[in-house]
Design a protein around this nucleic acid. Structure first.
Lengths: 242, 242
DNA sequence: CGGCAAATTGACACATCTCAAAGCCTGTGG
DNA sequence: CCACAGGCTTTGAGATGTGTCAATTTGCCG
């Protein structure tokens, strides 16, 4: 019944062929499933985890806190993302992971992951890849916040989320559920709450995007992507030999 | 005479113990050394490298270009940094790497690096670590640009550069050479050239930092670090079992 | 129905960008 | 040795973007 692990397999399968043997290794991984309430801290900044977790359901983000109480969400994660896999080699967390909605996380002991690095080189490279894809997304985030207008940042984010959700089958009828508050979106885009609100209003007015409550529809992805300057390359949603 | 590889060993040795055997593996790696002029493109966006390179000397940065001609430098790299190691598992470059000064890069075939992943698990984890440290620095960059004042960004950058250079013995008498133009610093910090100039002027006025031409002195690191909110944790400059 | 969090709007202050010009270094050629 | 060109730095002034503060509205849940 480890359907949880299947999500991980799905993530990897979108990027490379995984063998039956590799699938078996993943399926036999010891796992501990934990439910978190919205707002809960899944992994604490400064901690030294001996597990890494991937998201089974719900929304999470990496959070860094400034001195003035401001916080920056440096990355957004959805089901199937191996959120703090880097802790396997980094040891200490330099940021926290928080639940933006009720969510289920699956914890895998580092011991078992290290065993994979000892015995399954190709699978190791795929796990490595998963952390470098996160890094690529992070790079994009840096460039967005540094050199793009608020509207472009937001539009770009929505394009990215759309494709990432599509990969896990969470898009129905060009529509997805996006349960973040505007305050959280502000922390993600490096904007103030008020300006985020106005940016959303403006983006709505363009009709590139329909956004009612927590349901977002992108009627014409190409149009929104063009406006946002979005190129999906960096998501590495392509099967390659890695 | 592969002193180049010793730089790489040094980078890793700052983070974990590497065995003689591992050192031998690294020393026996085939390598191609290339000299680049200031401004040259070392790795092109969109390319599919079959080599990855680390910097032997000089300064490089990852660059992303916007439509309007604006560019964002998403990361800065110094001697010993394995700049595009992630291409081993990511295949296609989502950004370019450019030379900010004359510099020497050492290219290692992916074939050989993949062999390491097949035969040397611990070394593999260390290479993996190198990419995740880059990611940690990238996260910090995102938070800086998103939620910190220009002066804090600049001060933080100088603290980071100081420690990274110290690790490779490039700090003499609390002083280091920092040959970036203000225009490049602007692209790195997500600021305009003019505002960067004023920010540098303000930071100079504090005397936390002495900056003449391309020589920077930090007389009291703790003071500057306090101002910048700098915590070196994320650089992972600590020997651990990984 | 009341209470609370989130969304929305207005007004204003201030940070940052853009445009434009001047000054300063460095290397080069006469 | 000087003059000049070109890139980089510095400064000013004004336009614009974005943040802050404060109040109102909306929607949800008990």
């Amino acid at each position: 019944m480890s359907t949880a692990i299947h999500l991980l397999c799905q993530y990897l399968s979108h990027r490379d062929v995984i063998t039956g043997e590799e699938r078996d290794i993943l399926l036999s991984l010891p796992q501990r499933t934990v439910l978190f309430q919205k707002g809960a801290e899944i992994v604490a900044e400064g901690s030294r985890p001996d597990n890494s977790c991937f998201i089974y359901s719900g929304w999470t983000a990496r959070a860094v806190h400034g001195r003035n109480g401001a916080r920056q969400l440096t990355a957004l994660h959805v089901a199937g993302d191996f959120v703090d896999l880097h802790a396997l080699v980094l040891k200490q967390m330099d940021h926290s992971v928080v639940a933006l909605s009720e969510c289920v996380a699956v914890f895998i002991p580092h011991e078992s992951l290290r065993a994979i690095t000892e015995q399954a080189p190709h699978l190791t490279r795929l796990l490595w890849m998963s952390t470098t894809i996160d890094a690529a997304i992070q790079r994009k985030m840096t460039a967005l916040i540094g050199r793009h207008t608020p509207a472009e940042r937001l539009a770009h984010l929505m394009c990215e989320v759309y494709l990432r959700l599509e990969a896990i089958g969470h898009i129905k009828n060009r529509t997805f559920r996006f349960p973040l508050t505007q305050s959280e979106i502000a922390d993600l885009l490096g904007l103030s709450l008020v300006h985020t609100n106005r940016t959303i209003r403006d983006l709505r007015a363009t009709n590139w995007i329909i956004w009612e409550q927590f349901d977002v529809t992108i009627p014409d992805f190409a149009k929104l992507a063009k406006f946002a300057g979005f190129d999906s390359n960096y998501l590495n949603l392509r099967v390659e030999s890695r």
